[in-house]
Amino acid sequence: MHGEYKVPGGKLVVVDVEIDDGGRLKDVRVSGDFFLEPDDAIERIDAALEGAPSDTDTAGLKARVEGALPPSAVLFGFTAESVAIAVRRALAQATDWSDYDWQLIHEPPQPPALHMALDEVITAEVAAGRRPPTLRVWQWDSPAVVIGSFQSLRNEVDPEGAERHGVTVVRRISGGGAMFVEPKSTITYSLSVPEAMVSGLSFADSYAYLDDWVLGALGDMGIRAWYQPLNDIATEVGKVAGAAQKRMVGPDGGAGAVLHHVTMSYDIDADKMTEVLRIGREKLSDKGTKSAKKRVDPLRRQTGLPREAVIERMIESFRSRYGLSEGRLTPEETARAQELVRTKFASEEWTARVP
């Protein structure tokens, strides 16, 4: 069995392993493009994992690796935990980015409720095996507030402010916090991927794993960015993006798919945002800031590029790493999404399901 794990902002860890008749690890070989001292520490890591029960969790495998390393050991670009994660991914027969033929969907501007529906439909199609893993870049046709699946509508949105600014309120299928968007103020994208891609990863690790490509894309534009647990992407000047996920089961309860979507701040009108969203002082103070303007840092000032150029560079960065063919929504997918808008995402029952 073969497993790989790219450390967010770090190096690649690779594990090749077999399981003996007693259900224990054997012939363990750890490799990668990381740095490690002393030289024989790699052999100590292999030996520490040899004979471990195959059901040992990440914490247990991490403890074995740490216990085998001398105090003088230096691990650069990886950690004992990343080795453990690579082992778990090997045992789970996890897949990697390069195992798939990725498809891009980049449609003209669409209504907020339709975007919510498309996320559900596309991810369900990936789970059913009828669609390849998909990167969808959103374009908004009107301003909106998107609240998390479990947020209280009245606690998050000021209805008078929303009405005054012509803002539509929609609820997505994933958890997390509210976001304020205008057609040219944010960059939003979704990844719909087979569940096998995150096999062996904890929920938190899957965020970092699926965010890693965009850290590289930002780096290509001269922005040093990093994953900030649980679901943020940050730079030296503050948060620039927030992510959310939803796991969906496959047909008949089989292997499913993961929806991972991200909204990045390009040039948000923070004053308008505070009139529409009920952003409490406690939430802002938790981020170490005193105003919403400081908390939402626009990419426009950091890149110096038009929004469309940032999007194009992100797409090209993804394509250069993993390949990406142009795709479109099928008529069936569009029809199903429109029906979901009518029956779910544009309904008061769904939007106010947590009043």
Rank of each mutant, 00 (worst) to 15 (best):
G22I: 04
G23P: 08
V30K: 12
F34K: 06
D39W: 11
A41L: 05
R44A: 14
A48W: 10
L49P: 05
G51C: 03
L61Q: 02
P70D: 01
S82I: 00
A86P: 03
L91C: 02
L91M: 05
I105V: 15
P108T: 04
P111R: 08
P112S: 12
H115Y: 00
E120V: 01
E120M: 01
V121K: 00
A127Q: 02
R131C: 02
P133C: 03
V145P: 04
V145D: 02
H165L: 14
G166N: 02
V170D: 01
V181T: 15
K184N: 13
I187W: 09
L191Y: 01
E195A: 14
V198A: 11
L201M: 11
F203E: 06
A208K: 05
L210F: 08
A217L: 09
D220G: 15
A225I: 13
W226A: 14
Y227N: 08
P229Q: 13
L230R: 03
L230A: 12
E236F: 06
A241K: 10
M248I: 15
G253K: 10
H261K: 07
M264T: 11
M264K: 03
M264V: 13
K272Y: 06
V276T: 01
G280W: 09
K283D: 15
T289S: 08
K294E: 15
D297C: 13
R300C: 11
I315V: 15
F318C: 05
R321D: 10
L324M: 10
S325V: 14
E326F: 09
R328L: 13
E339D: 14
L340F: 06
V354G: 01
